[in-house]
Design a binder for these strands. Structure first.
Ligand code: MN
Ligand code: MN
Ligand code: ZN
Ligand code: ZN
Lengths: 141, 141
DNA sequence: TATACAAATGATAATCGTTCTTATTTGCAT
DNA sequence: ATGCAAATAAGAACGATTATCATTTGTATA
């Protein structure tokens, strides 16, 4: 199980549900998880945590900087461990597979655009949607 | 009122609710409208259209290429008249002011990224958030 | 170690944006 | 004018998320 230090230093009591959620993100195969993903994975691991608690804890972890929340298409929020370094996402519309990328040129041009339009950037989100080429992806070309 | 030609050529019967919605987008002060924006503005203009119809019509207009849908943060879909040319958005976090932009370099680099990662782009969304420099903006620097 | 109490949990109700269902109305071709 | 498929309106249903609140838990203190 995970060391409770991360929680303590975030000002959060180290409770069982919190430790389980954090543990899941650190050991899960999938890096990007929705609230229901977390809930179901915990259930199927025999851990019983309330769905409301999952939502509550995810939001707390986001505010504490432990997780980052993304608003992909599909309506549901998706979370990932905060690596500290920004990146953007490309998502497969067929199978939901997510790849991460960082493009210096894009980042630089964004600054350029903002300056031209008289804005100071505080944040941005770039989501590319398409079809991936994984073998197990139900892609129809 | 608007000419029904746009609807006809989109394969849609030119009904009263459809004409009203289209008219609203073409004469509204705000360019980006949510379903509820449309619904409320029609109500306050004395026009009575069902909310379900608004949702149906917006989706049909999107499919017909008359409107473009955006998934901004905040959970609700926002629509705007399709100008035919793609653009992205920069939004002021202080006053909500929205500017549109198109950057050829960014678009090109996105293709590059997708190719590198084995994706075929179908769509993308780029939202920059920041502080604008309008006189009436409550900016705190 | 036992106690005390604020903080956290979990079950469920409520909310929000959106879609579905269905009886009624409408546009439009004859 | 008539007929009928297509469209509408009202409300139920839905999926994701948040709020409520009685019960439990972590932890500080004695
Ligand atoms: Mn990521
Ligand atoms: Mn726009
Ligand atoms: Zn795929
Ligand atoms: Zn502003």
């Amino acid at each position: 199980m995970h060391q409770p230090d991360h929680l303590k230093s975030a000002g959060l009591k180290s409770t069982l549900p919190r430790l389980k959620v954090l543990d899941l993100f650190e050991n899960s195969k999938e890096r990007h998880l929705s609230a229901e993903d977390v809930y179901k994975q915990l259930l199927s691991s025999g851990e019983d945590v309330g769905l409301a608690t999952v939502y509550r804890v995810l939001t707390q972890f986001e505010q504490a900087g432990l997780l980052v929340r993304h608003h992909f298409e599909g309506g549901k929020s998706v979370f990932e461990l905060n690596k500290g370094e920004h990146h953007d996402h490309i998502v497969c519309l067929q199978c939901g597979h997510v790849e991460e990328f960082f493009d210096t040129a894009i980042e630089a041009r964004q600054e350029n655009v903002a300056t031209t339009l008289g804005f100071t950037i505080r944040d941005h989100s770039l989501h590319i949607y398409g079809d991936c080429t994984k073998k197990d992806c139900p892609h129809k070309p």
